[in-house]
Design a protein around this nucleic acid. Structure first.
Lengths: 382, 382
DNA sequence: TTGTAAGCGTTATCAC
DNA sequence: GTGATAACGCTTACAA
């Protein structure tokens, strides 16, 4: 560098200097007018005119360097193709956009190393804050979050003493809702298709399943449990394996992708759903409504969690010294055709076109009067 | 400001100054070492040591201000929940990440005004470039793109003389592939479920459908055409309307979401797919494989288009003075159970867990020998 | 190789 | 109200 050129930028675009010169005022005055603070009517006019003439647009980077904020917020999820994250993303986007910021989406692929390096990169301060929903969580994650100069909010389970903002749901209880429902419907041999046990969701669901059966005095039959991945193909394969060695009358799936996979495994073996095998998914994504028959699913309030996470993040950005907070979203069960006794019902009426909110079926809330609509799951902050 | 404080940053984080002071060298030397250019072995050691001790991380914003690049690339799509965009997003992400950049995803909701303001905001230079896939395209779009100081690549149809990098597919021909296939299978009353005609994809598909029928000497029966939205619920509703007034033996749908909606409309009226009504979708998304029976679908190479768009963008970022380029991705038809004569076949074997690439069925390429795998659709740049 | 200093484009301070 | 100028944190020409 070292060349003197204070007028337009290198590529010829106007800067405050350009505008100021053209308006015949100092850059300070120009800047003030451009930001709507101060300036005599005459100055305002001249600057506005000059700016319009040259097509001035402020450089967001220079502004960020000065203001120490970028107006960007990041969301890191494992699988951008999983509808549960799409729902979360939409909710986050809405809150973030409403605050005038923009959302940066990272797809981590569930890769631990990648996630950690992402967290560490926060130190570069390219975003004002980050929401992360890790499916595995290590000490490195925690350390990177604590050390990070920009606020982080975690969606998902976290050690109780972790000094990080956190919004969670009780997926363990969610599994319990599904088990209760299936048992109440008279099912006795409930199969369980889970994701990897070394992930947080996988481990919690496994514990929840065993606890739920135990609470009903039922011994766990390991033959009825299959572990695969949180994906359609893996779910289908897992269901096929399970069906080859056991005779379940119900299948509980750790998410909706697995459930749709299981549905197709069942259909391709000519098992009727729900007559022969009842099916319940988790996450209550759009997929659950787009399956045929429509899937009962445990709602973990992903949109709500996203919304709360975004709110917590924005609050912390505004007030960095807040103590760590924790928000809860209660799970609920949305019952649809796939687990409704009495034949294959017709699919429910289509919801509003473009409506991102699941059309509710019957709902069995956790701490909620039966029949209450799961419009907005209650959230509370401890 | 105006306060002299050249050591750490306002919130106490180390800067080059901190490192330089600690290492006992000038900030220039510190910067050089940190960037791996120059420096005597002794200096390098001292600076590295100092940087590690204070936990120095460069400020990306300051760096951007200097380098005039942010390392961010944006992708703007209408509906982040539509699997076709998910596929595109993944492909873009891969290319972008490989270049060491990060991807910023905007969900425009198909809102024209929002899209244009997004394009205009590019002038703020917060990203190094943008890929946009508008479903409606106006003169304002074009003007904003031409005026934009940062490169824009459009995925989708564009006026031929628009001086903008562009990757497109021939969805008109794609519709033709589907019509040919259905006619060859002996279907004669082909219904068509389209999206809005005032969108580019909707208009092109409509033209394609009519042209394809005409080329076979078939007169269009307007009763067999329904227009809704590019969504599941709308597709289902449209199919229901169409079935109420006509008796199609095949249904061609403008995308896979509509097709899944139509599938459920058919199933809920006890029509067998494909025996009574053959079904073909478009976009060949994951949804097509996740439906039961699996959906035949016209692949428009969304992943490929995303990849090409990202490549074009990166090339232009590197070389801004390139003439406008245009890349093509050929459509192909992936035939699956939903349009295969001879009963409801079992769904195909599950693809690799986590495999983002659709498991190919039989393929009828456009300019390709029959039976060739649609591994990577051929792309050519004019 | 090293240090000095200019400059990226903006906002904020402080005298006038 | 206005203008000169420092500062945000970094890179880099240029001279030593």
């Amino acid at each position: 560098m070292g060349r003197k050129r204070l007028q337009p930028t290198a590529d010829g675009r106007p800067t405050v200097h350009t505008v100021a010169a053209r308006a015949g005022v100092s850059i300070a005055s120009a800047s003030r007018v451009l930001n709507g603070v101060g300036g005599s009517p005459e100055t305002v006019r001249k600057v506005r005119e000059a700016a319009a003439e040259v097509g001035y647009v402020p450089n967001a980077i220079a502004r960020s360097l000065q203001s120490q904020r970028t107006g960007l917020v990041a969301l890191a999820v494992a699988d951008i193709g999983n509808p549960v994250y799409v729902a979360m993303m939409r909710a986050v986007e809405a809150v973030v956009a409403a605050s005038g910021r923009q959302l940066l989406v990272h797809a981590t692929g569930g890769d631990v190393a990648g996630e950690i390096s992402l967290l560490r990169r926060l130190a570069h301060r390219y975003v004002d804050g980050m929401i992360v929903s890790p499916i595995r969580i290590t000490d490195h994650h925690l350390e990177a979050m604590v050390v990070s100069p920009v606020p982080v909010v975690v969606v998902g389970q976290l050690p109780d003493d972790a000094p990080v903002d956190n919004v969670r749901t009780d997926s363990r209880a969610g599994v319990g809702l599904a088990v209760d429902h299936l048992l109440a419907a008279g099912r006795r041999r409930i199969g369980f298709l889970n994701g990897p046990l070394d992930t947080v969701p996988g481990a919690v669901r496994d514990a929840g399943f065993r606890a739920a059966l135990a609470s009903h005095g039922i011994t766990v039959d390991e033959n009825l449990i299959e572990v695969g991945d949180f994906q359609y193909a893996a779910g289908r394969a897992a269901a096929t394996r399970l069906l080859a060695r056991a005779e379940p009358d119900a299948l509980l799936c750790a998410n909706d992708l697995i459930a749709v996979g299981a549905l197709h495994a069942l259909l391709s073996e000519d098992r009727r759903v729900p007559q022969d095998v009842a099916l319940v998914g988790m996450d209550d994504t759009e997929l659950a409504q787009m399956a045929f028959p429509q899937l009962s699913s445990v709602s973990l309030g992903s949109a709500d969690r996203g919304r709360r996470a975004a709110e917590l993040l924005l609050e912390r950005i505004a007030e960095p010294d807040l103590p760590p907070r924790r928000a809860h979203v209660a799970p609920s069960l949305v019952v649809r055709a796939s687990s409704t006794p009495g034949g294959t019902p017709r699919p429910a009426a289509p919801s509003q076109p473009g409506d991102p909110v699941p059309a509710p079926g019957r709902t069995a809330g956790l701490a909620r009067a039966a029949g209450t609509e799961p419009v907005t799951a209650p959230t509370e902050v401890i």
